[in-house]
């Protein structure tokens, strides 16, 4: 009987040394304990999932591009102010489109979106000193020069949508509504950087230690 226990013990040691402990790193796909060929079920259903591989389409993708000259339902964008940043006469829109309500909520949204998508390059203050500057992206301009302070809102909208020389477009990440929110926040950054004591209401100056 001793021998039987010894053999069992060695088999156990063998198994542990072959399979190792939990938490090791490995590069082979995980083993399926109940593999599909032995236990047919619904683990791998013949359906397409986003960004996955297709054996049917020539380019090997399940996500299909939108065919040329078609528009998805609800995606017909006729409001030029909102979707192109252009006024009725075709010039860049100054101010905000009529369908956008400018309020504190839009500002908060703009702040959040700006921090995610713009601050890595343009910096939290919009001075062009984002983290990427330290890694060699010197081309990022500050928002606080005269030209960008006077530029039309519609043109900033166009920069976000289509990019501009070294800056690539952000249209796939930022929805039109969020673009206007970001522009509002950019405007407030510009206002803040060029503010004077006179901008602070008299009864709030003491809170900030101003005279």
């Amino acid at each position: 009987m001793r021998n039987v226990y010894l053999v069992t013990f060695f088999i156990a040691v063998l198994i542990v040394s072959v399979f190792g402990l939990r938490g090791r790193h490995f590069t082979q796909p995980p083993i399926e304990v109940f593999p599909e060929w032995a236990f047919p079920g619904m683990k791998h259903q013949p359906k397409y999932k986003p960004q996955s591989e297709s054996k049917f389409f020539a380019d090997g993708r399940t996500d299909r591009p939108i065919p040329a000259n078609t528009v998805s339902r609800t995606e017909l964008r006729t409001d030029d102010e909102l979707y192109l940043g252009k006024a009725a006469d075709g010039s860049w829109l100054r101010g905000f489109p009529k369908s956008i309500t400018v309020d504190a909520q839009l500002m908060a949204r703009g702040h959040e979106r700006f921090s995610i998508y713009c601050a890595p390059c343009h910096g939290a203050l919009g001075d062009g000193n984002g983290i990427t500057k330290q890694y060699g992206m010197g081309a990022t301009p500050t928002y606080h020069d005269t030209r960008l302070r006077e530029i039309a809102e519609g043109e900033i909208f166009n920069t976000i949508t289509h990019g501009k020389t070294n800056m690539l477009p952000y249209a796939d990440k930022v929805t039109p509504h969020d673009r206007w929110a970001i522009i509002l926040y950019v405007r407030s950054l510009q206002r803040a950087q060029n503010g004077t004591v006179a901008d602070v209401p008299a009864d709030h100056r003491s809170e900030l230690g101003l005279k």
Binding site: V4, T8, G23, H25, T27, I31
Partner: peptide
């Protein structure tokens, strides 16, 4: 007694090695 020990060991082995904590955790493909 031996069978009881063996079944105990087998159960421990299955729970340790055949559950996602072993089969999946640590997967880091190239």
């Amino acid at each position: 007694i031996y069978l009881v020990v063996l079944v105990g060991l087998a159960t421990a082995g299955v729970t340790y090695y055949m559950t996602p904590k072993y089969t999946r955790v640590g997967y880091a493909p190239v």
